[in-house]
Amino acid sequence: MRISTLLYTLKQGLKNVIRNKVFSLASMATIAACIFLFGLFYCVVANFRYMVKEAEAGVSVTVFFDEGISDEQIEEIGNLIKKRVEVDKVNYISADEAWNEFKEEYLGEYADGFENDNPLKDSASYEIYLKDVSMQSALVTYLESVDGIRQVNKSEFTADALSSLNSLVGYISGGVILILLAVALFLISNTVALGISVRKEEIGIMKLIGATDFIVRSPFIIEGMVIGLIGSAIPLLGIYLGYDKLINYIVEKFNILSTILKFLSVDIVFETLLPVGLIMGIGIGFVGSFWTVRRHLKV
């Protein structure tokens, strides 16, 4: 396509948007609401995932062995554990290491009284890190059945409750977004249909002059895409500007939870949110207008 044709088409598309001000604004507002909700939802989910990931990284299962077990047996058990699919990493912690750690953490300077007498001499253990926290119970069941294992200490961390909250938020936002999406499509379709009816005569002349379908249709497609672009750019900009303020507010309000509440930076969130949001907005505009043009503009 020629540059001059492209410019002409763009100009006509923009003209369409301006000519149907009221409808264009209504469509933009609906898309904006849709993308805004999507953006919020995405921020919540992305941060939530991030927090869970951070928390999960510290989750481990610890196994202790029967008294009087030999080092070979311990090694054998270690090999069994390493073969499990759930397992990401296994650390062996000898009785001495366990004692040293305990001393440092709880006794400090009072540890001297124990001298070389390790009260935790049967406390050698494996510290097992999981690939995925949800696999914890399966692994624990297995470990409990292994000969030579006296005790399995599992982490109390449960992502289950949080996960179900997460999916509830997901379903509700998803539902609202779908409804808004449908409304946005409907409005765009009406806006474009109105534009087509206003320009019926012009379209008729274009066809008689020998304009191709592409030239006749593209201003209307552009119209839809411009509406989608503006409709998605506004809420995205809003979220971008408001994000840090919101995070600061949350951190201040809930600073007791500051160890769990770790947030992604706005730039990392927008690495995904910006393209996805814009594509969604422009996509709604494109689909809505394309579909309408096909229905109302049989060339």
């Binding site: 396509m1 020629r2 001059s4 044709t5 002409y8 274009m206 020998g210 304009a211 030239i215």
Partner: peptide, 11 residues
């Protein structure tokens, strides 16, 4: 000019 624009005549 419209008649030429719609058939992509150069400006």
């Amino acid at each position: 000019a419209f008649a030429q624009r719609v058939i992509q005549t150069p400006t």
